[in-house]
């Protein structure tokens, strides 16, 4: 087990290292960094000064070393637009994104699982067909398109819900969140649904397959023979058996929710890291872009690592396969 953890940890560090190298080369070596880092109206004198003070006249490996050293100290450069350390900008916006992501994940579970169970209990029924066709829609239509339709219907036509911003935030136990005020909740609904639609489809499919396969197993027959009520069989016995794969997938999908949050946040002007990234790209605020990429990649590696770890605890075969 220890060998497995160490091996995975080394891999994770390697990936982070390679990412930092690629990002460094992309930003600082391929493009002319001075064009990016110095405002257009700078004089030649200022340019030379900037080149020297940024160390751009030194050889590339030395520059990369400096970049890496600074990054390890949590210094990923200063945003041109906000004139703040880019890392603190990211960390400031992260709670908004996490809030959105958690609510979306919650919605995906509470909507997706019941639908999947009902569809799986009666495969081939009209309900099943309807749910499955809708879930293809959820899978195949681009996220931004769904978001646009939501705004179109609920904000423009019906005028029920606001379409931009985070609304008023409340505070509870020292946590600031839109969840604690009515206005905040109203602002949260559409983006959260938008972000969760894809995952709802995924969970519906997973649950449906799981229920269909489990209902045929012997223990269900025995439970019926013993006179256990049908609802109890489904809710207690079957659910317990299909929960493990669903929980695993949900864990892994959390990362992809963070990724798709970029799209949702842009559509709904939700002030999270995703919107920050797109704004930074538009304004050529490279340090923020670099900081976003490194933070998100690090987050991803951590999530994948933890999921791997949990998985190997649940299923020793994975561990043996990975250690080969």
């Amino acid at each position: 087990m220890t060998v497995f953890i160490i091996r995975r940890l080394m891999q994770a560090l390697l990936v982070l290292f390679v990412t930092s190298l690629i990002v460094f080369l992309g930003v600082y070596a391929i493009g002319n960094p001075i064009d990016i880092l110095v405002p257009d109206d700078a004089t030649e004198m200022e340019r030379q000064q900037a080149i020297h003070s940024l160390g751009l006249d030194r050889p590339l490996p030395v520059q990369y070393g400096t970049f890496l050293l600074h990054a390890l100290h949590g210094d990923l450069g200063t945003s041109f637009v906000f004139n703040q350390p880019s890392i603190s900008l990211i960390l400031d916006r992260l709670p908004a994104t996490l809030e959105l992501a958690f609510v979306a994940l919650f919605l995906a579970i509470v909507i997706g699982m019941p639908l999947g169970i009902i569809a799986g209990l009666k495969p081939g029924s009209r309900f099943d067909e309807g749910v499955m066709t809708t879930s293809i829609l959820g899978f195949s239509l681009p996220n931004f398109w769904q978001g646009m339709m939501l705004i179109m219907i609920f904000s423009v036509w019906l005028g029920w819900l606001p379409s931009t911003g985070r609304g008023q935030m409340g505070s509870f136990l020292g946590i600031h969140s839109s969840l604690f005020t009515l206005d905040g909740l109203a602002h949260l609904i559409l983006p959260a649904i938008n972000l969760s639609l894809f995952k709802i489809s995924l969970i519906i499919r997973l649950t449906r397959t799981g229920v269909r396969e489990t209902m045929l197993l012997d223990f269900v027959k025995f439970a019926r023979a013993r006179g256990v009520p049908e609802t109890r069989i489904v809710v207690v016995h079957v659910l317990k058996n299909i929960l493990i794969p669903i929980v695993t997938v949900v864990g892994m999908e959390f990362g992809s929710i963070i990724a798709f949050a970029v799209v949702t946040e842009t559509i709904f002007a939700w002030p999270g890291v995703g919107k920050l990234l797109i704004d930074a790209v538009m304004r050529l605020d490279r340090p923020v872009v670099v900081a976003y990429i490194l933070v998100v990649v690090a987050m991803f590696i951590t999530i994948n690592f933890v999921v791997d770890l949990i998985y190997s605890l649940l299923d020793p075969r994975i561990r043996l396969g990975g250690a080969k």
Binding site: V23, V27, G255, I258, F260, V262, V263, A280, N304
Partner: peptide, 20 residues
């Protein structure tokens, strides 16, 4: 495995954020 560990849209987004 490494590539499939990241959502495609995220990788594409990051690449274009750097490349333009």
């Amino acid at each position: 495995d490494l590539m499939l560990g990241f959502p495609t849209i995220l990788v594409a987004l990051m690449m274009l954020a750097v490349l333009g």
